[in-house]
Computed example of a mutant assay.
Amino acid sequence: MSESTRVVVVGAGAIGSFYGAILKRAGCHVSVVLRSEYDAVKANGFRIDSPLGDLSYRPDAVYRDGDTPEGEADYVICCVKVLSSIDRGALIKPWVSDNTRVVLIENGIDIEREVADALPNNPIISCLAFIAVSRVAPGEIEHKAFGALTMGSWPEGVSEECRAIAALFEAGGIDVKRSEAVVGERWRKSLWNTPFNPLSVLAGGADTVTLLDTPGGEALARAMMAEVCAVAAADGYPMPEDAIDKNIAGTRKMPAYINSMALDYLNGRPMEIEAILGNVVDIAHRHGVDVPRLETMRVTFAMREVLGDKQA
């Protein structure tokens, strides 16, 4: 837990800059790689307003894509969106040496394999972030709530490298759950994300109250969640029998919530359709599980793309 731990954050948007701040507060040497906003961050660093206090910081180095790294990284943390247009393995590779551990703080299911195939000699640590954070201006981030991480070595276990980075995040002030079966944790998060995120987009950016209170809405969400449960069980990660009821009850307790994919849609940003929906359908095909509603939703997005809706 000192400056001897060198971290490179690839994709320092709202998520990446926040977790970079946490590691900086823990005493790490933190560098960032940016695809945009380089000039603003190079000049002023990050300004982060947070319930945890002032997390503003200047990275120890600021790079553009294609720059040459100075020194070797102990950890490379990838926080870019999981999109078919982004080759994450190629994006990370310049910053990885023989002894670098790769940390993925990203959404979706089965999102590790692409990176592991590109970097077969580097351990993968997979993380799920539970956080409300957004970019409000170049280099300016608003952290509204939460921030906890669930992490584990991929495909299973909790390695010493995983325990070490978890301890650094905790030293920086956030809670970390270490999981021996991080794929199972991804399935549990997918139980909600896979139906609700794409469905909200197909409903024009609808919030959770609209989705559940529209006649037939809750029944449709439950049916889609049941399909996710069936795929997860076939993949070796069965859900508790009350998982759907608990998720629906929890969603109903929330105020009207517009999820991150709906916000991406409403703001014309690329969406992680394949990572969150398409990969579940692909896994269903591998196991021979019938998922007609999820399949229909995926095909609908494909049609939208053919018709020129580039947001999809």
Rank of each mutant, 00 (worst) to 15 (best):
V7M: 06
V9N: 07
G11C: 06
A12I: 08
A12Q: 08
G16S: 07
Y19D: 02
K24H: 13
K24G: 10
D39A: 11
V41N: 01
A43E: 09
G45R: 00
I48K: 08
D49M: 10
G53K: 10
A61L: 12
A61R: 15
R64F: 00
K81I: 01
V82R: 09
D87V: 00
R88G: 06
G89N: 06
L91Q: 14
I92H: 12
I92Y: 15
W95Q: 05
V96T: 08
T100K: 04
T100L: 03
R101L: 11
I109N: 03
A116N: 11
A116M: 14
I125K: 14
C127D: 03
C127T: 01
L128D: 02
L128W: 02
A132Y: 11
V133H: 05
R135G: 03
E140A: 13
A148N: 15
W154H: 15
I165P: 01
A166L: 04
E170W: 11
G173D: 05
V176C: 07
V176T: 04
K177H: 13
R178D: 01
R178G: 10
A181G: 13
V182S: 13
V182M: 15
V183K: 15
E185G: 10
R186K: 15
W192P: 08
F196M: 15
N197F: 02
G205W: 03
L211M: 11
G216A: 06
G217F: 03
A221F: 08
A221H: 04
C229S: 01
A233G: 07
M239H: 00
A243K: 00
D245R: 00
I248S: 02
T251K: 04
P255C: 06
A256D: 15
A256N: 14
S260Y: 12
L263H: 15
Y265Q: 08
L266I: 09
P270C: 10
G278P: 09
G278L: 12
N279S: 10
N279I: 02
I283T: 12
H287Y: 12
G288N: 09
P292V: 14
R293P: 08
R293T: 05
V299T: 15
V306W: 04
G308M: 05
D309N: 11
